[in-house]
């Protein structure tokens, strides 16, 4: 019994961080929107880490799953808004759509791209993301490049007050819940057979195959899980919080890069890493944009390079190294 509880010790610092964030957002005036952005980055990092951190594969097309999730929610809202009996249920349907669509896309992508390794995998996933965007625009799927704007529909079915509260407060709370869930799933995977198999894979894929581990199966599990979370994040942060969807914006490769930066800053393959990375990245960018508007990227780029060279394992990775045997480490993985 004690052992089972101990297994979940590492969740404490993660949840503590979320709890403090939430309190700061609720109680310090002007902080809620910043907290919501930070939560978005946390959720993004956590979700991305499930695949990248555990397998070492770099999915450059990750944003496609967020995009598809956004479309899932948008389609549910625009197509079902006239069914007044639905009420808030429409959001639940939207999440279900987002989850299913992201999972389906990830199965399709996984079946193709997961046969590849290293740089080939990274390039293939970029191809999926860009190709999908051009398919939507070219074949005019889901309104093509006109996209969808659906504040009016949300207002219609939920009422103006509820809709407004949804997009400025509850959406952020849902992002927080997604981040918590993602942390939970990450730890669960780490401590189960999946985690051990994927660690073997990350160290040496060929050796893992020789050892008789069904590498493909576990890769696909991690890939689909990670993609499904991305779909949920998209449905919340980009559909509920941003009541429109335009293809170039939801397939923008920049977000994949941000996810990579967050995970790498904090430490790939650790539980606390994405949270630490998200906070460092989000907070420093926010204050750079306030105190040095227009120069944040110029300052940020060399900092990223320096961090990669000096702390290749990320902040949490480094912490783990320097406090290897202390009790503190029971809380950090």
């Amino acid at each position: 019994m004690r052992k089972t509880v101990q297994r979940y010790y590492p969740l404490f610092p993660v949840f503590a961080a979320y709890f403090i964030l939430f309190l700061v957002g609720k109680n310090v005036s002007g902080m809620w929107q910043l907290v919501s952005t930070l939560l978005f980055y946390c959720a993004l990092g956590q979700a991305f880490n499930i695949f990248l951190g555990m397998t070492g594969y770099v999915d450059f097309g990750y944003v496609a799953f967020m995009g598809v999730g956004t479309y899932g929610m948008a389609i549910a809202i625009t197509r079902l808004a006239h069914v007044e009996a639905l009420g808030v249920l429409i959001v639940a349907i939207g999440f279900a759509m987002a989850l299913v669509m992201a999972a389906l896309l990830s199965v399709a992508v996984g079946a193709v791209a997961l046969r590849l390794r290293g740089a080939y995998f990274a390039i293939a996933t970029i191809g999926v993301n860009e190709g999908f965007r051009f398919l939507i625009e070219g074949a005019k799927i889901w309104n093509g490049s006109d996209g969808m704007i659906f504040t009016a529909q949300l207002n219609q079915i939920l009422g103006r007050e509820t809709a407004s509260a949804l997009s400025t407060f509850w959406a952020d709370v849902i992002v927080l819940i997604i981040a918590v869930l993602a942390a939970f799933v990450t730890l669960f995977y780490m401590k189960s057979k999946i985690g051990y198999a994927l660690t073997a894979l990350r160290e040496d894929e060929d050796a893992a195959v020789v050892m008789g581990i069904n590498v493909t199966k576990y890769k696909i599990i991690a890939f689909i899980t990670s993609a499904s979370f991305a779909g949920l994040v998209g449905a919340t942060s980009w559909a509920l919080k941003t009541p429109y969807v335009f293809p170039p914006e939801v397939f923008e490769i920049h977000y994949t890069i941000e996810a990579i930066i967050i995970v790498l800053l904090g430490g790939a393959g650790t539980l606390l890493g994405p949270v630490a990375g998200a906070l460092i990245y989000g907070i420093s960018k926010y204050y750079l944009s306030i105190f040095l508007p227009g120069f944040q990227l110029l300052i940020f780029a060399p900092i990223i390079i320096i961090i990669i060279i000096l702390f290749p394992e990320g902040v949490i990775g480094m912490l783990k190294k320097s406090f290897r045997d202390s009790t503190l480490m029971r809380f950090i993985i």
């Binding site: 919501s36 914006e249 944009s289 508007p293």
Partner: peptide, 20 residues
């Protein structure tokens, strides 16, 4: 403030502008 032409920054900065 500079929103970097990015939506995440737009909401957090508007939040700050209004409340802080």
């Amino acid at each position: 403030y500079d929103c970097e032409s990015k939506k995440e920054s737009v909401t957090s900065l508007i939040g700050r502008l209004i409340t802080v």
